[in-house]
Amino acid sequence: MTRTTPPRPLDVEALFPEVAAYRRKTVRLHPRGGNPGTGESSLGGPLLWPRSLAWPHCTDDHPRTAFAPPRAAGALPLVPVLQLYAREVPELPFPAGADVLQVLWCPFDHAAGYVPRPELYWRDSSASDGESLTPPRPDGAGDDYLPAPCVLHPERVVEYPNWDLPDDVAEALEERFEQVEEETGWSYWSHLSVAGGVKAGGYPTWTQDPCWPDCTGCGGRMDHLLTVNSAEFDGESWRTWLPTEDTPASGTIWDLPYEDRTLIQRPPGLMLGDMGGIYLFVCLRCPDRPYAYHSDCS
């Protein structure tokens, strides 16, 4: 089943022409519980991993939090998070010769952000020499950091900056934003700007001040590659970002039983901090494609 974000309830650029210059397209991935195979794009599903390559492990020191590995656990196997094929998400900046992006992470807190630490791999799927064995689940890993297998339903939508809207533009528009919300009930910040959920490209779905990393190689600001959020929408944004296919007959998502709502709002079962997200960035200027990540939560 496809997933279709409803059209914005207002003409954003007609009301706020100042934001038109900052328009971007994002690919909402809309993960939903399923049984993906290695040849499919997925979240938390099996990866098309070359049999000749050892499965990656984490040997970092971990802070002693509620999401720490057992003491003396040794090297910890990473777990699959995302696999994205170019045929389904061609908007990703695939390097020459690569057609699949794989994201794995260590499912324990790390000192940087107290969230899992991701690793990125760009691959040529035709060069794979077979499917990998199912990686072992790291001892002591909690469900909050272990995504349930999900199939994806990529959808292209337009979004406008939220936290990334330049200060001078935001200040100039503040009164109009408030007036429109008072007259229509629609908030630019919650309903008209940035899409939530798991997505490729566009703007990070910050819940705190933006933190764009600079490349340690060339010094330039990195580009947003992926956002992995705890939820596809929150208690306010669902009114415009809930897909049509998932909207209950009553029109109100909160009328659904908790279990049914969770399958729509949080199908991978992730909880990154307090409904937070992890944002992945890449430098497109450097040939070795360095990457970085940042996380925040409410």
Score class of each variant (00 low, 15 high):
2 T>N: 11
5 T>G: 00
11 D>P: 00
15 L>N: 10
16 F>R: 08
17 P>G: 11
20 A>H: 10
23 R>K: 15
24 R>D: 07
25 K>L: 09
25 K>Q: 15
26 T>E: 09
28 R>Q: 13
29 L>E: 07
30 H>G: 00
31 P>H: 05
32 R>G: 01
34 G>A: 14
36 P>L: 12
37 G>S: 12
38 T>K: 07
42 S>W: 05
45 G>T: 07
46 P>M: 06
47 L>E: 02
49 W>S: 04
50 P>H: 03
50 P>S: 01
51 R>V: 05
56 P>C: 04
57 H>E: 14
61 D>P: 00
61 D>E: 14
62 H>I: 07
64 R>K: 14
64 R>L: 10
65 T>D: 09
69 P>V: 10
71 R>Q: 12
73 A>G: 12
74 G>D: 10
75 A>S: 11
76 L>E: 02
78 L>I: 04
79 V>N: 03
89 V>G: 03
89 V>H: 09
91 E>P: 00
92 L>D: 02
93 P>K: 10
95 P>L: 11
97 G>I: 03
97 G>Y: 04
97 G>R: 09
98 A>M: 06
98 A>S: 14
104 L>G: 00
105 W>V: 03
106 C>K: 11
108 F>Y: 13
109 D>V: 02
109 D>Y: 04
110 H>V: 04
111 A>M: 06
112 A>W: 07
113 G>R: 10
113 G>H: 05
115 V>A: 15
116 P>V: 09
121 Y>W: 15
121 Y>N: 05
131 E>Y: 05
132 S>Q: 12
135 P>A: 06
139 D>P: 00
139 D>V: 11
141 A>H: 07
143 D>Y: 02
145 Y>S: 03
145 Y>C: 04
146 L>A: 04
156 R>S: 13
156 R>Q: 13
160 Y>P: 00
168 D>P: 00
173 L>Y: 13
174 E>M: 06
175 E>A: 14
176 R>E: 15
177 F>Q: 06
179 Q>R: 15
182 E>N: 08
188 Y>V: 07
190 S>L: 13
192 L>K: 02
197 G>I: 02
199 K>V: 04
201 G>K: 08
204 P>D: 00
205 T>N: 14
207 T>I: 02
207 T>E: 02
210 P>L: 04
211 C>H: 05
214 D>T: 15
214 D>L: 11
215 C>E: 02
215 C>M: 09
217 G>T: 10
217 G>P: 00
218 C>H: 14
218 C>R: 12
220 G>A: 14
220 G>P: 01
222 M>F: 12
224 H>V: 05
225 L>A: 05
227 T>P: 03
229 N>D: 13
231 A>W: 12
231 A>H: 14
232 E>R: 15
234 D>F: 12
234 D>N: 15
236 E>A: 09
237 S>K: 09
239 R>T: 06
245 E>F: 12
247 T>S: 09
247 T>W: 01
249 A>P: 01
253 I>D: 11
257 P>M: 08
262 T>F: 06
265 Q>L: 01
265 Q>M: 13
265 Q>A: 13
265 Q>H: 01
266 R>Y: 01
267 P>K: 08
273 G>Y: 06
274 D>S: 12
274 D>K: 10
277 G>V: 03
277 G>T: 04
278 I>Y: 02
279 Y>I: 01
283 C>I: 11
288 D>N: 05
293 Y>T: 02
295 S>C: 12
296 D>Y: 08
296 D>T: 03
297 C>K: 06
